[in-house]
Design a protein around this nucleic acid. Sequence first.
DNA 1: AGGAAAAAATTTATGCAATAAAAAATTTTT
DNA 2: AAAAATTTTTTATTGCATAAATTTTTTCCT
Lengths: 218, 218
Amino acid sequence: MSGLREKQKADRRRRIIEAARTLFAQAGSEATTIEAIAEAAGVSGVTVHNYYGTKAGVLLALVTESDRELLQKMARDLPGKSSDVIDLARRFAAIIRDHAITFLDKKIWRQVIAASIADADSRFGKSYHSLDHQLALVLVREIEALQKAGQVSAEVSAYDLGKAIFSLQNMRFVNFIAVDEMTDVQSDALFTRDLCSIFVALPAEQRAAAMRHIESAG
Amino acid sequence: MSGLREKQKADRRRRIIEAARTLFAQAGSEATTIEAIAEAAGVSGVTVHNYYGTKAGVLLALVTESDRELLQKMARDLPGKSSDVIDLARRFAAIIRDHAITFLDKKIWRQVIAASIADADSRFGKSYHSLDHQLALVLVREIEALQKAGQVSAEVSAYDLGKAIFSLQNMRFVNFIAVDEMTDVQSDALFTRDLCSIFVALPAEQRAAAMRHIESAG
DNA sequence: AGGAAAAAATTTATGCAATAAAAAATTTTT
DNA sequence: AAAAATTTTTTATTGCATAAATTTTTTCCT
């Protein structure tokens, strides 16, 4: 049976990530070469490539790990604290920005996000997006709670709404990361504008028509 | 006086872009080396770097050019055809998807979008985002028209709403580009769900409270 | 347990992007 | 027409990424 082989692979993975974390923290990701990571991990440079594809892949793996932390933080700090959906969305966005900026600086985040798009179909691109999805689900559950409290229309799909708000949040997050001067206060204000504009965009008499659009689009 | 120098620079720029367009179309951007572009343009490889920074920079310059076309197409095909804001948004998204997929394939688009984030503060990253902004403005103008027709609440800022819808659209566009299997019909359906969910999310009695959020967030 | 078979990592080699510094060419200025 | 200024090219280096051949290590079978 195969046991040793798998264990050694996992071990090398761990050593590579550990080495990368240390070196990235010391000198930044740009100043750290793959070869240096490999040496610190006790493997060859080619092995790092075999395991993680690209240097950005190593970075994505690091981020993916931290995202598990974020997910826990989200599940702990978000539920049951919001009086309405706007409050909820802003809280959600704030937790994500906060976690992101504590963990890495904007420059490196730009590379991470770029990599998650460029290598969207790679192993680590996928795991990155999967964690996005799990984050969105936490939001969905809170929306369901707000629906029960009458703060959100019962006719709307909590899942669809959660995904949509997550999209908006994500776009603002990318913007926050892309622009060095953007503060979290500014980003929060812009996000609030995004949300509220759409929330109140439709006159009451147009809402029934809007619902029909969903069905016709499939 | 200085005239010749500027003219020759512009000329080299044009030749480089022209060479890149031809070679990218023939062999794809990955199989095309900077050196090959330089040779076809009659300059040195280093000059291409001096002018465009990176290979992705050359690609962004190409796209930026095509985006001017898109902007014209948008200004021509979008106005005055939509009966409501959902219709408008879907039409807007469809024109963008259509233009994008006609111009480049998804694989290359992923690189372009990744580059626009990674090099957001470079010269070409900026011009890319500026064209995004101009596209959003076309949408804003149409929303203003719908407001006059009573299809959109008069109390909401057309600019804010336009930007917000553009963000949602952009996120869906990135998703459309990132996932090879995603068809434009599917993407349209998902986008419609995003929009409608948010549009009808708030019960009528919550809308006044939503408006107050905007002010408090600044 | 020992040897064959399979799997995986390493070595070796190559191509290309990106950048820096020195040298050469060309335009501008006086 | 020569000096000064600017820009391109040449030259050289580093590091990412990938491929092919080789060696090491693990697994499987008798």
